[in-house]
Design a protein around this nucleic acid. Structure first.
Length: 574
DNA sequence: GCCGTTTTCGGCCCGACTGTTTTCAGTCG
C-alpha cells in the first residue's frame, strides 16, 4: 500500500472522529499523522513491516497499530465502527464553505442530512434556517456554494509556474503604485511548492486604502469579494483566489513571515516560542516578560529574535528546519547560478522544436559550459523515435558541430523497456557521451516488477542517470508504483545519478524523495528536459526550486561541476 | 493522540471574520 493511500485512510479517520465530536487534539493528531505519512521519503508500509513506523514524527503506538491493521485487513477497525454511525457523505458536507464538522453534525442530527444531495434538498425546501444556530444567511450561503459548483471535493491546485506568472504580474503592478512601500508574494508560491491553491500578496503602504483600491482595479482581477483598510480578497480571471494584506511598514517582516507559512511551520515555530514566553503573530512578537509587542520590518529580524538562522521560504514545511535553524546548521542551498550544464534536452531529431546548433547556442548564451543532446530513442513512438541508424547520424552531427564556447555531448534519453533493458545495443550506447534512461511505457506494472525494472536500468553499466524517476505528472497522474527505497539504494550502490526533472509539470524526483536520496548518498542531476530554446534555461527554475525544497547543496548535484570533473565522478569512471 | 532542555501528565499557535447571538462558537487561513 502506498503512502498516499495510507494517508488518505487517516485523513478519513480524522474527519470521522471530528464529526463524532472527538477532542480537537485527537483529530489534529490524525491529520498530522496523515501528512507525515504522505510526505515520508520512504515507504511507510515497509517501515511498519519492520516495526519502525513510530520513527516518524507524529506517529505513536496507537497510530502505528492502526497502520498495521490497515495493511493487514485493508481497513482500520475504529473507522469501520464509526462508519456504521456516521454516513460518509457527511464528510463532503463539511467541505462546503462555512460548514464545518460541528454544523454538519447538527444537520445530520436534526434534519437527517447524510449527503450533499440531502443538503441541497433541505436548502431548497427552506428547512436549514430552522436548525438552531442557522439562519437565512446560512441557508443562502449553502445555496450559493452549491450553485457555484461546490461538490465536496477540494478545489484543484494550479501549477507553481502558473501561480508565479499571475502572482509576479500582480506584485509588479502594485510596486508601480506611488503608495506602495513594500510588496511581496507570500504563501505557497513564495515557498515554491509544486502547486498552489491561492495567492497571498502582502504589502506595506503609505496610503493603505489607495493601494487596496488599486489592487481591486488591477487588470488581472475579476471579482472582489471583500475589501477594507487591511486588504482585500479577490479572484483573478484565471480563477485563482488572491488574498491581499496590508500592515504598517514596521510590521512588514512579521506579516511576510506569517503569510509565507506554511501553516505547519508557523504552528511549530509558535509552539516553541510559547515555551519561552513569546507569542508570534502577523503583527509582532509579544513577550510575557514586560508585556510589550515588538514589531519587525524584516523576516531576518523575526527569526533572529527567536534565536534562529534565517530560514529560506522553501524549507518552511516543518520538516526539521526549525531545529536546524536553532542549531545554526541549515544547509547552504543550491542556487541557479551553480548550474554549469544541462544534460537532458530534445531537438528536431525527436519531438523538440530546435536544431542541435540552436540549442547549443542558446545554452552557451545563457552561460552554460556544456549540454547533452538526449533525444528520444528507438521505441519511443509518436513519430518521435530515433532509430539506431539515425542515432549514428545524430552522433556524427554532434561530433561535427562547431559552436564556440560550449561543449556539446552526444547522448540519448533511452527507454527502459518492461524487462529493464534499454532499446539500443550496448555498443552503440558505449559510443555516446551521456545516457539518460527513462520509463515512458507500461506504467501500470505492479510495484515489485516496476521496481525490478527500474533497478535493472540503474544497474546497467552505461546508464548515467535515470530521467524523471517516478513518472508523476502534477495534477494529472500519480507516479508509477515504485519502492522508492530500493531505487535509492540501487542508485547509491551503483553511483547512478537520479534526475530532478525541471519541467513544471513533473518536478521529478519530488522534493521529499530527492532529500531522502541525497541523504542516502545519491548524487542528483538537475535537467531542463527542454524541447526548445524558449524553455532551455527558463524551466530550470522549477528544478532548482525542488532541489532547494530537498535541502540540497551544490555538492550534491552533479551538474554544478565542470564537465571533465563530472565525467570523472560518474559510474563509468569507477 | 502525540510528546518531553518545563512535563511520562498536561499541555498542544494566533487572529479575523461571520452570523447568530445578547457575549461567542464555529470556521477559516
Amino acid at each position: 500500500m502506498r503512502n498516499g493511500e495510507i494517508a488518505e485512510a487517516f485523513e478519513e479517520l480524522a474527519s470521522l472522529y471530528e464529526l463524532d465530536g472527538a477532542v480537537v487534539y485527537r483529530v489534529v493528531a490524525y491529520r498530522n499523522a496523515a501528512k507525515a505519512i504522505r510526505e515520508a521519503g520512504v515507504s511507510v508500509a515497509e517501515l511498519q513491516r519492520q516495526g519502525r513506523a513510530e520513527e516518524l514524527a507524529g506517529i505513536g503506538s496507537t497510530i502505528a497499530e492502526k497502520i498495521g491493521a490497515l495493511l493487514e485487513d485493508g481497513s482500520i477497525p475504529s473507522a469501520d465502527r464509526m462508519k456504521e454511525r456516521i454516513p460518509s457523505g457527511l464528510i463532503e458536507v463539511t467541505r462546503i464553505p462555512g460548514l464545518g464538522p460541528k454544523r454538519a453534525r447538527q444537520l445530520h442530527e436534526q434534519l437527517g442530512i447524510a449527503s450533499l444531495d440531502d443538503l441541497r434538498r433541505a436548502a431548497e425546501e427552506g428547512r436549514l434556517k430552522d436548525v438552531s444556530g442557522f439562519g437565512p444567511k446560512a441557508e443562502e450561503n449553502v445555496m450559493l456554494a452549491l450553485a457555484a459548483g461546490a461538490d465536496g471535493r477540494d478545489k484543484p491546485r494550479v501549477l507553481l509556474s502558473k501561480a508565479l506568472a499571475v502572482g509576479e504580474e500582480l506584485v509588479a503592478a502594485l510596486r508601480d503604485h506611488p503608495a506602495a512601500l513594500r510588496v511581496e508574494l507570500a504563501g505557497s508560491a513564495r515557498r515554491l511548492a509544486d502547486t498552489c491553491k491561492d495567492l497571498d500578496v502582502v504589502a506595506a503602504a503609505s496610503e493603505p486604502a489607495a493601494l487596496t483600491a488599486a489592487f481591486c482595479e488591477l487588470q488581472a482581477i475579476d471579482q472582489v469579494h471583500s475589501s477594507g483598510e487591511a486588504g482585500a480578497k479577490a479572484v483573478t480571471h484565471s480563477g485563482l483566489p488572491v488574498d491581499f494584506r496590508i500592515v504598517p511598514e514596521e510590521s512588514f517582516g512579521n506579516l511576510l513571515q506569517h503569510f509565507t507559512g506554511s501553516g505547519k511551520h508557523n504552528e511549530a515555530l509558535r509552539g516553541e516560542a510559547v515555551k519561552r514566553g513569546l507569542h508570534v503573530s502577523e503583527y509582532g512578537i509579544a513577550d510575557d516578560e514586560g508585556g510589550g509587542t515588538e514589531a519587525f520590518e524584516t523576516e531576518e529580524q523575526v527569526y533572529e529574535r527567536l534565536g534562529m538562522q534565517f530560514i529560506p521560504p522553501e524549507l518552511r514545511e516543518n520538516r526539521g528546519e526549525l531545529k536546524a535553524a536553532r542549531d545554526h546548521a541549515l544547509p547552504e542551498l543550491i542556487v541557479e547560478a551553480d548550474i554549469r550544464g544541462d544534460l537532458h534536452m530534445h531537438t528536431i531529431a525527436s519531438d523538440g522544436r530546435n536544431t542541435i546548433r540552436e540549442m547549443a547556442e542558446a545554452a552557451r548564451d545563457h552561460g552554460y559550459e556544456y549540454i547533452a543532446i538526449t533525444d528520444h530513442s528507438a521505441t519511443h513512438g509518436f513519430n518521435n523515435d530515433v532509430s539506431p541508424d539515425e542515432l549514428e547520424r545524430q552522433l556524427e552531427r554532434v561530433r561535427e558541430l562547431d559552436v564556440d564556447g560550449i561543449t556539446v555531448l552526444a547522448g540519448t534519453e533511452g527507454n527502459v523497456l518492461p524487462d529493464g533493458s534499454l532499446d539500443y545495443e550496448d555498443d552503440l550506447l558505449a559510443r555516446l557521451d551521456w545516457v539518460v534512461a527513462s520509463v515512458h511505457t507500461s506504467f501500470r506494472m505492479p510495484e515489485r516488477e516496476m521496481t525490478d525494472r527500474m533497478v535493472a536500468a540503474i544497474e546497467h553499466p552505461l546508464v548515467d542517470a535515470i530521467g524523471h524517476p517516478t513518472g508523476r505528472m502534477l495534477g494529472r497522474r500519480e507516479g508509477y508504483a515504485l519502492d522508492i527505497e530500493r531505487v535509492i539504494e540501487a542508485a547509491a550502490r551503483t553511483g547512478t545519478f537520479l534526475e530532478i526533472n525541471s519541467n513544471a509539470n513533473r518536478r521529478d524526483l519530488p522534493d521529499v524523495y530527492a532529500r531522502a536520496a541525497a541523504e542516502a548518498g545519491v548524487t542528483l542531476v538537475i535537467d531542463s528536459d527542454a524541447h526548445g530554446v524558449d524553455t532551455l534555461p527558463k524551466m530550470l527554475r522549477y528544478g532548482i526550486a525542488t532541489a532547494r525544497r530537498a535541502w540540497l547543496t551544490k555538492e550534491q548535484v552533479a551538474n554544478t561541476r565542470a564537465w571533465p570533473e563530472l565525467d570523472k565522478a560518474r559510474k563509468r569512471s569507477r
